[in-house]
Design a protein around this nucleic acid. Structure first.
Lengths: 223, 223
DNA sequence: TAGACTTTCGAACGAACGTTCGACCAAATC
DNA sequence: GATTTGGTCGAACGTTCGTTCGAAAGTCTA
């Protein structure tokens, strides 16, 4: 499989994007360490040494993919959030935004989720910063949600990171032809999270673990 | 792995375990592709070529770590589940079992979560089989839960994989000195899931994005 | 003590790695 | 027509990779 056909005539910055697209796919398939520059050369149709005209190192390729993806997601989120006040709706928009991008750019998102700590030095700091910002937006939404609904004092860190877990784990199982698309998936996960986090914290039923054989009666609670 | 256990093989198999422990740590730190056999040699104290007396290849090291970890988790789960009938309690036990092992063996679990598709051929099939079994147990629990409580027709695959996502994502953020331990963590996540999945599926509140054509009326629901 | 079996490891293999270098070429500028 | 500029690439660099091999050391029985 050579190039997509028109890479001869691409402007310089477009060619860089072309390279990054194929690099993301290669990283997603083989992992950052498992993928070689030669693999990227092959899949993008640019010669091995030719890549180094556009890029300083393998690390920089990964950096460019990650930083571009995060910036796009955050920008879109802030845009979609503008003018929406209701915390639960803001949370739904966040989930929708995340999963929409996720399923539209599965390769990039897999690289984001999977190559978390492959970067070093300045690259790493840079990506960590925007990731922190993204995380901060969601924590704010959650705190507003809790304040409004007087929900239980659930650790926001745990709650938000659990939500990220639900969403980011998708790359390990989602099959486009089998599983729901972004809209249904985000509805499901958002409602799951909202109900899970906002109901009163009484256990659905309770049993203490004692020894092995102890059987206890489950208290039935309507939820 | 014969259990007949004469003392020579015992010492030998202990050394294999020693190697696998250090290998898991190395894989967790650098990833499967990023870690070299020389790294494992260095961290385990066994010479480079000496490793090949205990193990056939780098792939086999990864395989042995994964298969052993999965087998242990499944065995423990089946043991803990024995005699417990109530679906919600069974789900709580599953979450607890998973997270307890997770936080007690973070390196192995990180390797499980992270090096999902690094194996090939027979190794891969073997691990996929027990993973499928583990997944199946949880789906059964979920179906029982839904049958009992007449919960909403939530896609079991999505629900269960979301729960796995919550739990397995932990390896990216959990700091032992900062975050809750297994008990509190599993309580939180189990209740979150149970409430999230078992409440009636009406949205907490509803608003459609203004951009597109069709607009739904928001129904406000107290939770 | 001799011989057989298990365990260990230094040294080396060929292959693959990320990166560099200088030659090349087409198009634009002088 | 000569020179510069932006882009491209084959060939090679030094290093590291997974794996092998034969020798040696340790342990056990006879």
């Amino acid at each position: 499989m050579s190039q997509t056909g028109n890479s001869d005539q691409l402007a310089s910055s477009q060619k860089l994007e072309h390279i990054l697209r194929h690099a993301a796919q290669t990283f997603a398939e083989k992992g950052y360490e498992g993928a070689s520059i030669r693999d990227i050369s092959l899949s993008s149709g640019v010669s091995l040494s030719g890549l180094y005209y556009y890029v300083k190192s393998k690390q920089e390729i990964l950096y460019l993919i990650q930083i571009h993806t995060f910036r796009t997601i955050v920008a879109r989120l802030q845009d979609s959030l503008r003018g929406v006040r209701a915390p639960s709706e803001r949370l739904r928009i966040f989930v929708r935004n995340h999963l929409e991008y996720f399923l539209q750019h599965p390769m990039e998102m897999k690289v984001l989720a999977h190559e978390d700590d492959a970067l070093e030095g300045v690259y790493r700091k840079d990506v960590a910063e925007i990731k922190r910002k993204y995380y901060g937006i969601v924590v704010e939404i959650f705190e507003a949600l809790r304040a409004e609904r007087r929900g239980p004092a659930l650790n926001p860190r745990i709650a938000v990171l659990s939500l990220f877990g639900m969403m980011n784990w998708i790359h390990t199982w989602h099959q486009p032809h089998r599983d729901p698309q972004a809209e249904e998936l985000s509805n499901t996960m958002a409602e799951m999270f909202l109900h899970g986090v906002m109901s009163n914290r009484r256990p659905v039923s309770r049993q203490l673990r004692s020894g092995r054989g102890s059987v206890n009666v489950a208290a039935r609670v309507a939820v």
